[in-house]
Simulated scan of single mutants.
Amino acid sequence: MKDRLKRFDYSLIITVLAMCIFGLVMVYSTSYTRGTLLHENGSYYFNRQLIFFIMGLVLCTVMAFFSLKSLGKLSPFLVLLSIILLGLVLVPQIGIVRNSARRWIEIGPIAFQPSEIVKTFMIIYFAHIYAKKQAYLDHFAKGVLPPLFILGIIFIMILGQPDLGTAVHILIICGFIVVFSGVRFVHIFMLGLIAVSGIGFFAISQPYRLQRLTSFMDFDPSESYQLVNSYVSIATSGLFGNGLGNSVQKLGYLPEAQTDFIMAVVVEELGIFGVLFIIGGYLFILYRGVQISKQVDAVYLKLLALGVTVQIIIQAVINLGAISGMLPITGIPLPFISYGGTSLVFTLLSVGILINVSGRRSID
Rank of each mutant, 00 (worst) to 15 (best):
P92K: 08
P221M: 09
I156K: 04
I199T: 03
M190T: 13
A101T: 14
L145Y: 11
L227C: 09
E268M: 04
G341R: 04
S115I: 03
Q226R: 11
G238T: 07
L327T: 10
I51Q: 09
F346E: 09
V308K: 05
L88S: 04
Y282I: 12
A316R: 06
S29F: 08
Q258C: 02
V317M: 14
T166G: 08
Q161G: 08
A298E: 15
T15Q: 11
F112Y: 12
I194F: 14
V248A: 07
T342L: 01
F240I: 09
G198S: 02
R4P: 00
G325F: 06
Y287R: 15
L78D: 10
A131W: 01
S205K: 09
L148N: 13
Q311L: 15
R184A: 15
V89Y: 02
L239V: 14
T166M: 13
G238R: 04
I337Y: 02
G198D: 02
I96D: 02
V308P: 07
G200L: 03
D220E: 15
T166N: 12
Y300N: 04
V58N: 06
H128Y: 15
F140T: 01
M26D: 03
R7P: 00
D138S: 14
P162S: 12
E256Q: 12
A316G: 13
S224T: 14
L151C: 02
A101M: 10
F185I: 14
G245E: 06
L283M: 15
C174H: 04
T15W: 00
S358G: 07
Q315A: 13
F176D: 00
T36E: 13
G331R: 05
I337D: 05
Y130A: 07
T342N: 04
K133W: 01
V58D: 04
V290I: 15
M19P: 11
F189C: 13
H139K: 14
V299G: 00
I107T: 02
I150R: 01
A167T: 07
V308C: 06
K302F: 08
S100T: 12
Q211G: 10
I313T: 08
C60N: 08
R98Y: 12
V178T: 09
N41K: 08
Y45K: 05
V118N: 03
I332C: 05
P221W: 11
R184I: 09
F53S: 07
F261E: 09
L159G: 04
T33I: 13
L270V: 06
L254G: 10
T259S: 13
L306G: 06
N356Q: 06
E269Q: 09
Y300K: 10
H169P: 00
S233R: 01
Y225G: 02
A167S: 14
T166W: 00
S43P: 00
G307F: 05
G35E: 03
I107F: 13
A167C: 05
P221C: 11
